[in-house]
């Protein structure tokens, strides 16, 4: 018969190889749903992380602002003690610069509370001295003792230091957000691994048939990996879209600048969640591939 001789091996590759995997099953919707739900959660974790990052940066920046020495002294001693304070500050390690604020600057500071017509000259206002720290910072307690000795009416107001634990907390929050994304990715990998293993076990007959006709493990694994990766990326795309809509519907930042109202993406930050579906696809690819080869070895 000439028929068999025509069945030569050099034929064009069949691009529909993944059709060998049955199209339906519990693992199908489970994978899509898991990927979608995880991507949805990841969007919020990402928004939290980015918002916390902005907060940490803002508070960290504030730490670099000047501290203030508030000097209260009788009017006739004010200039003298101001000079003494400036002299102390100029010789204090960790202080980059210091200067006494002018009356105009002090009036500007008080204006929001007392109005523009505040008679600064007539009021016994303390002199404010702006202090800029150098990178290493200064010894606050030591400076207080020196100021007490040289200018008894001087009070070091390092009010910015209360921001440090907040900045640390914001940094931790950012870390927590990133950790959440990592956990979500791990959970996604675990769920998809389980789904892929279940699918392979449920399709033991398919695996037997494929092996009987000469399919290599790589071919069988590829068919399942392709199917699961496509399910995962489509589910993740839907989850990401819904998550982004949810974030967009959150109240926007107002002048009060509360943390919760700042939760969301800004500018190019909106591009970050778009990386989630490809990331989920990579996770699904790796998880399914590992599960497939492991299961195929078991099915021998």
């Amino acid at each position: 018969m000439s028929l068999l001789s025509r069945l030569t091996p050099d034929r064009k590759a069949d691009r529909q190889a993944d059709r060998v995997v049955p199209p339906s099953g519990h693992s199908a919707w489970l994978t899509s749903f898991t990927a979608g739900a995880m991507a949805f959660l990841a969007v919020f974790a990402l928004a939290l992380s980015l918002a916390a990052g902005r907060l940490a940066d803002r508070w960290s920046d504030a730490l670099e602002r000047t501290a203030t020495v508030r000097l209260s002294a009788p009017e006739d001693q004010m200039d003298l003690q101001t000079k003494a304070v400036l002299a102390v500050l100029s010789t204090t390690p960790g202080i980059a610069s210091s200067r006494a604020m002018t009356d105009a600057e002090q009036r500007a500071l008080l204006e929001p509370w007392f109005g523009p017509d505040l008679p600064v000259d007539a009021l016994p206002l303390p002199r404010l001295i702006e202090v800029t720290e150098s990178g290493a910072g200064y010894d606050g307690e030591g400076l207080r003792q020196r100021l007490a000795a040289e200018a008894p009416g001087a009070v070091l107001d390092d009010h910015t230091r209360w921001r440090r634990p907040l900045a640390v907390a914001a940094g931790r929050l950012r870390l927590l957000g990133l950790l959440s994304i990592g956990l979500i990715g791990t959970a996604t990998a675990a769920m998809i691994t389980l789904a892929a293993s279940a699918a392979l076990a449920a399709n033991a007959q398919v695996v037997r048939v494929l092996r009987q006709v000469g399919a290599r493990d790589a071919y069988i694994a590829r068919a399942f990996v392709r199917r699961f990766t496509l399910r995962a990326i489509s589910g993740a795309a839907v989850g990401t879209l819904v998550g982004m809509i949810g974030v967009a519907l959150l109240p926007s930042t107002d002048t009060a600048g509360g943390f919760l109202t700042g939760l969301g993406f800004q500018g190019l930050g909106w591009l970050y969640p778009l990386t989630l579906p490809p990331l989920v696809a990579v996770v699904a690819f790796a998880a399914t591939r590992a599960a497939a080869f492991r299961k195929l070895r078991e099915l021998t």
Partner: peptide, 27 residues
């Protein structure tokens, strides 16, 4: 045993498919 979700022709052509070869419809 066959792949029950594929038609007979695809099942018969399966050895070619897994070998990366396309089956000729007439053959």
């Amino acid at each position: 045993q066959f792949l029950d979700h594929l038609p007979l022709a695809a099942n018969v052509a399966l050895p070619l498919t897994v070998a990366g070869k396309a089956s000729v419809p007439q053959d």
